[in-house]
């Protein structure tokens, strides 16, 4: 677990090199203007707390990154030990005049909406949640959803998986195990399908759902079924449950692809990871709010272009030509020439 903890901040730098989009460059481009009243940004954790070595912790990393890179920024990170603390935490930051307050995920949606109604002049954002569905429904003009275009990075990993299978020959089959059939999961799957088909036409993509995000055994079973059907790459889209997917891949001696964070620490069988950069999201949301680019009642979408999604460490066994191919596709997506689908076929 310790590795995960460092994986996130390290990945923040490593990805920069790999994907060739200069995050630091964007940061440096920001004009460092002095303000009379300091800009204040707050982050409220869910009950997983900031030492969860994952979702909450990565967002705290983003907040600290913002503090380091946005001159004069004041930050406050409030931890919630129980659901009873969500609302007081939001309200307390709003009362103290924070300019933007970010809720660390869907668990806080209801309380965030309640507080946002009470403090219409304060900007709110919520990680990995769209402002178009309840409790916000697009009507709360001071709440911004922070969503991730995971079909884009999934398209790239799908292509990479296709290239590897094509090179190896044999069964032209790959698999993906999702948690539950819900939009945030399906965007990964759709991109993966499309990317694979793009780089290995005629490839077969097996799609399975474990109906669980926690129980590793369930994902492992689904993955093993797919491997039995000839799958040569297994993509995990089921959080902690998906560790079972990757374990099945390791045991079968095939490739595995990680999700959300860089899971290359799991071993040399990890081809790469489809990374969702919640730290970048927090940073960019704060920066946008400060620059007057706050999208109240709508979503701030993180994609390959703004480095909100990306790839983790790519296995050194991947040929350089493949990397070049991936870089080319990335450029096309960033340029808007390719639009990966969000609906599973």
């Amino acid at each position: 677990m310790k590795k995960v903890r460092f994986a996130a901040p390290l990945a923040a730098l490593a990805t920069v090199a790999v994907v060739a989009v200069a995050l630091a460059g964007t940061g440096a481009a920001a004009p460092a203007k002095k303000q009379a009243t300091p800009f204040k940004a707050g982050l409220v954790s869910d009950v997983g707390r900031f030492n969860d070595k994952g979702f909450n912790q990565n967002q705290l990393v983003g907040l600290k990154y913002a503090q380091a890179h946005i001159p004069g920024l004041q930050i406050s990170a409030l931890e919630s030990h129980s659901a009873g603390e969500y609302l007081p935490n939001f309200a307390s930051l709003a009362r103290k005049g924070f300019n933007i307050i970010i809720g660390a995920g869907f668990l806080l949606a209801n309380q965030e909406a309640t507080v946002a109604k009470q403090f219409p002049n304060t900007k709110f954002a919520i990680t990995d949640y769209t402002a178009f569905i309840p409790p916000f429904s697009g009507k709360l003009k001071n709440v911004e959803g922070l969503t991730y275009a995971t079909q884009e990075n999934s398209y790239l990993v799908g292509c990479l998986a296709g290239l590897m299978v094509k090179q190896k020959g044999g069964s032209q089959t790959i698999g993906v195990v999702g948690g539950v059939k819900i939009p945030p999961v399906d965007t990964f799957l759709a991109g993966y399908q499309a990317g694979a088909a793009k780089c290995d036409p005629g490839i077969k993509v097996l799609v399975g759902y474990s109906q669980d995000f926690i129980d590793q055994a369930k994902c492992k079973t689904v993955a093993q079924n797919q491997i039995d059907q000839g799958s040569q790459v297994e993509f995990n889209v089921a959080g902690p449950c998906g560790l079972g997917t990757l374990d099945a891949a390791k045991q079968a001696g095939i490739w595995g692809i990680g999700v959300d964070v860089d899971q290359s620490y799991l071993g040399s069988h990890i081809l790469t990871s489809a990374v969702k950069r919640v730290d970048t999201g927090v940073y960019l949301a704060i920066k946008g709010a400060q620059n007057g680019q706050f999208k109240g009642g709508a979503d701030l979408v993180f994609n390959l272009k703004n480095a909100g999604v990306g790839l983790g460490k790519i296995s050194p066994n991947v040929p350089a030509s493949f990397l070049k191919k991936i870089a080319g596709l990335r450029a096309q997506i960033v340029a808007g020439k390719i639009k990966p689908p969000t609906k599973v076929k």
Binding site: S45, R49, F50, N51, I75, S76, A77, L78, H81
Partner: peptide, 10 residues
Amino acid sequence: PSVFPPTLAG
């Protein structure tokens, strides 16, 4: 939070 890092305070 400027005195106590949030993880310490928790």
